[in-house]
Structure formats: structure tokens, C-alpha cells
Design a protein around this nucleic acid. Structure first.
Lengths: 119, 119
DNA sequence: GATAACATTGGAGTCTACTCCATGGTCAAG
DNA sequence: CTTGACCATGGAGTAGACTCCAATGTTATC
């Protein structure tokens, strides 16, 4: 697939996709080029971009996302180290879920208040 | 309290607090000044800053946070409109929680994979 | 074979959310 | 009464994450 198709399928602009390439969030090896120098993207790249989109939406910076992605296929860490890294990410997500629930109950409280006042 | 104390208690820099004032995220009425022109902040402001911090951490932009805060004490909307607005925010939070859980299980899957490979 | 719609790279510009001066006033401690 | 630690305002500068543009190449279509 060419970049235009990837852009359509992910909803990210061509420029954004190229930017992600530039900062190493997604990578094409040299062979993924057509004869005319056009880049050939795989379905895997779409999946990765979807993950990036989701993580961004959840308030992670591109840097943080990069770290997670790098660990995903990392060859230098031991099995235990990688698992530990992922566990710590899960802990982070749990922390966020907790905070979200806190904000939810704050808003719920406010709704109750408004209903009381409205009477 | 003066801005230095607020800064200490919230962990936000003076500049950040002043910036939030500038864009209307927090407001001081004219009477909240000492004779020497120093700003007098209330405990309420600290609470509001804590909410802002939390929302930021959860991936909301200052603009989105401002909209929520403005609705908080809004006088122009009807009771029903305000409740609807808050309900929609809760739906948004639920959406985020859902996505967080999705990412969690993605990571869990990967941990399993790694453990398998490690054998 | 001209035109439109795509692709490439490189670099400049923009928006958000700060962060860092510079300048000048205030005040408690020594 | 000076020194150091605060305070205020205004404006410039910065990092992150795009977004836009220019110059140029490629390809499908009329």
C-alpha cells in the first residue's frame, strides 16, 4: 500500500505518517520501496498506527509510545526485563483508569448537586 | 495564600499558574488582591488546579478542561442542558476507560507471547 | 503528450502549553 | 537601610506534534 491508502485507512494525514517515520515511531526497511522510490507500507504498519492513535488519545506522548514500541520487539533486554517493563506499563494504565473513575465520581456528584438545586 | 504557596502545594510552577490564569482556567475576582497588589488565592483554587492536573494527565487539552470548568458553574444553560453536558463527559470518560482496558489486554497478550518464546 | 493526482525530500511555519527573562515593586531579617 | 526572597506584568523563547509549502519525480487518464 502507498501512503495515501494508509492515510485513508487510519485517518492520519500523510504528513503525520511521514512525521512518525521521521521520529522512528514506524519504520520501513530499505526493501520496502517500489522501483519508482515510492514507499510500500504493510498492513502491520496500519495496526501500529492504530495503536499509536489509541495511546495518544489516552494521553501518552509520542516519546512514551516510542519506548513501548521499542520494547515490543526489543532484542537487547532479557525476557524478565521485558516482562517487567510491560508490567510497569500496565500499572500505569491501571493508575489512569483509577483517576478516570475519580473524575467520573466528581462529575456524578456535581450532577446530583445540580438536580438538588433545580428542585 | 500567595502564589508561591499554591505552587508548593500543587507542584505547578508559578509561571504555569499564571498561564492558567491568563487563559481563564482559573479566575481571581478583583477583590482577591492584597493592598500591595499581591494576589490572594483561596483553597478552592488549589482544588481546581488539582482537577486540572488530573484531567491533563488523562489526556485532555486545556481547552477541553476549560469547557468542563465553564460548564461547572454555568448560569446560562438550563438544568437539563447542564446535566446532559456532564453525562456526555462521563460517556467520554467511559470510552477512555474502555480503550485503556483494550491496551491493557494487548500488553497482556504480548507478555504471554514473550513467556512462550522464552521457554 | 498534456493534465491531474499521486509520490518524494527538505525545510519553514503553526499551535499548544509552558518556561524564561527583564524590569520593577514589596517586605522580613540582620 | 541593604540584601535576599518574594510579588507583578509583559514579552520572548522553547519543545512537542504536527501542518504546509516548494521543488521535483511518477503514473493513470483523456
Amino acid at each position: 500500500m502507498l501512503i495515501g491508502e494508509i492515510s485513508l485507512k487510519t485517518g492520519l494525514s500523510r504528513d503525520t505518517i511521514r512525521y512518525y517515520e521521521k521520529i522512528g515511531l514506524i519504520k520501513l526497511n530499505k526493501k520496502q520501496r517500489r522501483d519508482n522510490n515510492y514507499k510500500e507500507y504493510s498492513a502491520e504498519i496500519i495496526e501500529r498506527l492504530e495503536i499509536i492513535k489509541r495511546a495518544k488519545y489516552l494521553g501518552f506522548s509520542l516519546q512514551e509510545i516510542k519506548e513501548l514500541i521499542d520494547a515490543w520487539a526489543n532484542k537487547t533486554l532479557t525476557v524478565d526485563e521485558r516482562i517487567e517493563l510491560f508490567e510497569s506499563r500496565i500499572a500505569l494504565l491501571d493508575e489512569k483508569i483509577l483517576r478516570l473513575n475519580e473524575v467520573k465520581s466528581l462529575i456524578r456528584k456535581r450532577i446530583k448537586q445540580i438536580k438538588e438545586e433545580g428542585k
